[in-house]
Structure formats: structure tokens, C-alpha cells
Design a protein around this nucleic acid. Sequence first.
DNA 1: GTCTATAGACCGATAGAC
DNA 2: GTCTATCGGTCTATAGAC
Lengths: 195, 195
Amino acid sequence: MGSPDLDLTEPDAPALSAAQARVLTAALNLFARHGVGGTSLQMIADEIGVTKAAVYHQYNTKEEIVLAAAELELSRVERIVAVAETQPTQRQARDALVAGMVDLAIAHRREMGDILTDPVIVEHFAQNRAFADVMHRMRRVLMGEDAGPETHVRTAMLVAAISGAAIHPFVAGLDDDVLREELLGLARRMLSLPS
Amino acid sequence: MGSPDLDLTEPDAPALSAAQARVLTAALNLFARHGVGGTSLQMIADEIGVTKAAVYHQYNTKEEIVLAAAELELSRVERIVAVAETQPTQRQARDALVAGMVDLAIAHRREMGDILTDPVIVEHFAQNRAFADVMHRMRRVLMGEDAGPETHVRTAMLVAAISGAAIHPFVAGLDDDVLREELLGLARRMLSLPS
DNA sequence: GTCTATAGACCGATAGAC
DNA sequence: GTCTATCGGTCTATAGAC
């Protein structure tokens, strides 16, 4: 059952050219505003200020852009998990993970969470090994080594609560700092950490 | 500040013909699978087994279908809030609301939550009075009458946690009953209710 | 309420010049 | 790496018969 030959190098470190980064940044921005299905290559090209053909020079299909954008978001989460894993105690690791996820959600607001809940992305990640690995590492940090299947729900709920609350219309008018403190407080209560 | 002339009749009771109900049911199903932007009127028509023109006879634009589908989902949430409001004590009201939201999320799984997080729907609800009313009533049931602005985040987080966790790939393989118990337990902990 | 047929715009994707 | 130009297909939406 244990994975042989544990690889400690980063599994999600997408190497992007400057042009590719521009495409993915524009794509994530538009996905957050119009959804994946509601975003066309023409819209991405216009956002960057080039033509469709220039975009096609970087990625051969729209699907490639969608998956690369999703992996870019995943790599940000993976980085937070990796930092948390370096903490000396489990208490500090959990705290670092929660704080990192809250900061990411605040920084992106509309941008994140949208791509994590888009049906196209959900279906992709549902059978994606890298995503499953990151989620399992997150679960281990939060719940410990010997955790039952019910901790899957708890991990998913924490992620959904943080990223989902940040994009919720009901908190649209709230200040970033107020939002951050409340997200941190409730996330810690979900994990029974002191606030 | 208090609302004069309190109306006890249901504010969100969409009166639908059988044909309209068929359109919205098919639309919600497809929105959950492909997103709002990724769903065409042709797909909706094919799902029902009629032509596009027949669909256009019920709703004049795609936007009308999207908004009617969103209101249908909102009316389901409103009904849960209304039932909770009839409970004799606040403790029972909170319990009924949480249980109702969990049951709704379980029943829909992919179907719900998707439409609540779609960027198009989020933008619509962000400036929608009926949505704001339902959310404020929900907040009052959960947090009490005299609640500060920070309770907006708590309410949004609870909704996001329940609906978001249900559609998360990380719980895709889980049994409905296990999912329900875990969702109930964590939701109650977020509200400091006994499990 | 459903159909066929169609209009006009936009879609993803490609070819080839610079 | 970016452009112009274009392909075939699908999109929303409408007109008009049954």
C-alpha cells in the first residue's frame, strides 16, 4: 500500500513561458467572470491584446488552456501544503495550512473557487492523480496519519467553506481584513483549533 | 429600519407550466454537468426530446431560462428557511435549517451548488433582492436578531461548506449516509450546536 | 405546443505570410 | 511570435406552417 520511491521534488511546478503565463492569467480571470464554458478564445485573445492565432501558437486547443489553468491553480494549493508540511509540529502545520488557504482565497476572491467548482474542472480533477495527491497530503496535515474515510468529508468541507465563502455574494461588500479574520476563526473552529 | 407590512405569503413560489418545469429541470441537470456557459438551447431541447423552437415558446431567451432555473433553486432554499422559521425555539430552528440544507445538498449532489457558484449566477444574485432576503432570514435563524456584520461571513461559510463539500471530487466515492452525518456534524460544530 | 427552415453572428481551429 | 484570412460547424433567435 505504501508508495515506493517517494519523490520529494515538486510534482506541480508548471514551467511556463512569458506568453503562456499571459494566456493563463487572462484565462483564469475570464473563467472567474464568465465560467469556463462562457469564455471563448477570442475573449482570451482580446484580454491579452493579440489575435486568436497567437493564442493557438501557445496552446493547440481550448481544452489545453483549461487544463493548464486548472493545474496552475492546483500548484498554488500544492505549494501551501508543501510549506505546511515543513512545520515542526502538527499543530503548526495545521495552522500554516489553514492560514495559507485563507490567504489564497482572499487574494483571489472571485478568481479562485470559481475554477474549483466549475463542472468541467470538477470532472477533470475527479480522476486526476496530482489533485488526489494534494488533497490526501492536505488531509494528512489536517487530520493526522491514521484517519478514517469520514475525514475526506471534513477536508473537502474545509476547502469548500474557505473558497466558497470568499466568492459568496453575501460577503461581497465586506472588507478583506474582516473577511480574513472570520474565515480563520471559523476554519479553526472546524478543526477544533484555538482562535 | 424594520420592514413595514410583513408579508407572510411565499415570496419565491414560481408558478410553472408542465412544459416550463420540464425545461428548467433539464436546464439545471445540464448546468450541473457542463456549466451555464457550456449549455446550449440545443442541448436543453435534446434532453427534453423537442426542438429549440419549442423551448423558445416557453422562454424567449437563454438568459430567461438561466434566471428562472436560479430562482427555482432559490425557492427550494427559501422553503427550508420558511419551515425553520416556524419552529418554536431558536435552537430547533437552527437545527431544522441545517438539516434541511444538508438534505438539499445530498439530494442534488452535483446539481445544486454548481448553480450557486456559477459566475453568471453569482453576479445575478449579488444584486438580487429576493436572494438577499433569503440570506438575511437565514442569518437571523442561525445567528439571532442582533448580529454584527461578521455573521455574514459565518452564514456564507456554512452555506458554502455544505453545498461545496457535497460536489467536491474528494467525496465523490462516499456513501450518501456517511456524507450526510459528517456534513451535519461539522455544520453543527461551526454553529456550536451539539452533534 | 410543436414542427421545419433559415438568418446572422460567433465558435474552435488551421494555413501561410512576415 | 504575431498577423490576415478562411474553413466548417454551432450558437441564439426568428418566421411561419400545422
